[in-house]
């Protein structure tokens, strides 16, 4: 169980994390979403004790990370953004070292190391130096280090970054598998990943939580209407008016066109499914139907909507001179928080 209450982190005048609160139940996976510099990594570093918070409280597996850091850390596995590998150690040596500092008794060490290597499938690299591993292996050795001591809580900062598609799928499977007996927070900006692996999503922007929900609810909440994209070969005519005339179609915009095809984006009325009518119209007009794709409001869109339509924060300095673009101030802030 992870509980974050009103955690705030300021670096001088810059607020990297602003009054963030959320809760992850035991055995759940929480996805932590946000643009770069939103405060994801800072929040995770606070939870793992790598950095302190200016204000607020955080409980990991029942222990306060500020009051009782050693007990909290004993129950936490952390994979930072860059896997913390010692280049001059072999994978086995590295994991053995990690096991030792995590207080795993020497009798169990070999077995635990082997188990962690097996779970993350890095056994074939066991005797290779960490410095010589490819990005994908580095990431997985980092993950092996995080799960080594079988912690209650796993905090994974972009666990699939730099992996190839097959490894991404494997890693996601592994994370899902781990969920049962571990509570997991993972950060990412790959949105399908959240949809596929997480039970709960926290979207954070400029240090603030802008949404906490399940991926399903989030997509549902913002899916007002559906858009269908279609590519048509209209044989020289303009297909737009005919389609616009159909019942259930709100508007039609031409997205692209070339000599023998026209791409239209058809905005439907809420709840209306006009795919059959669209197809029938095209066919009955004698045109060629090349493509018909429903464009659902994806997590990407939701994400963009939530993280860009936010009002600038009240405590932002007023842009001086008025000529400055409105986005300038928040952007600066994001960059400063990144540093």
């Amino acid at each position: 169980m992870i509980e974050v209450q009103h955690v705030t982190k300021r670096y001088g005048p810059v607020t990297a994390v602003d009054d963030v609160s959320f809760r992850v139940e035991s055995g759940q996976i929480l996805g932590f979403l946000g643009p770069n510099g939103a405060g994801k990594t800072t929040t995770m570093r606070i939870l793992t004790g790598c950095t302190s918070a200016t204000d607020g409280q955080a409980l990991v597996a029942g222990y306060d990370v500020f009051e009782d850091p050693v007990e909290a850390k004993r129950r936490t596995g952390y994979l930072p953004e860059t896997p913390p590998l010692y280049p001059d150690m072999t994978v086995r040596e590295y994991l053995t070292f990690a096991a030792r500092i995590n207080g795993i008794k020497s009798a169990a060490r070999r077995e635990r190391v082997a188990a962690a290597m097996a779970r993350t499938s890095v056994e074939d690299m066991a005797d290779r130096h960490c410095g010589k591993l490819s990005k994908g292996y580095r990431q997985r050795v980092g993950l092996a280090q995080a799960i080594l001591h079988n912690p209650d809580v796993l905090i994974l900062d972009e666990p699939t970054a730099g992996l190839d598609p097959k490894q991404i799928i494997e890693t996601r499977e592994l994370i899902k598998e781990l969920a049962g007996d571990h509570t997991i927070i993972l950060s990412t900006h790959i949105l399908p990943e959240v949809a596929q692996t997480c039970e709960q999503v926290v979207i954070i922007n400029k240090g603030r939580v802008v949404a906490v929900d399940t991926p399903g609810n989030l997509t549902g909440r913002l899916r007002g209407s559906e858009t269908i994209r279609m590519a048509i070969d209209p044989l020289g005519t303009d297909p737009a008016p005919a389609i616009e005339g159909l019942a259930g179609v709100a508007s039609v915009t031409a997205a692209a066109s070339d000599s023998d095809s026209v791409v239209l984006e058809v905005q439907c009325d809420e709840g209306a499914d006009v795919r059959r009518e669209l197809a029938a119209t095209v066919v009955s007009s004698g045109w060629g139907l090349l493509e018909l794709t429903p464009l659902r409001m994806s997590l990407e869109d939701i994400f963009l909507e939530l993280t860009t339509s936010e009002n600038p924060r009240e405590d932002d300095p007023e842009p001086s001179g008025g000529a400055e673009p409105a986005e300038a101030a928040p952007e600066e802030q994001v960059e400063a928080a990144d540093a």
Partner: peptide, 12 residues
């Protein structure tokens, strides 16, 4: 190299 995070996040 960031390995300090391994030490900082460990129960040491």
């Amino acid at each position: 190299s960031g390995t300090i995070e391994l030490l900082l996040s460990s129960p040491l």
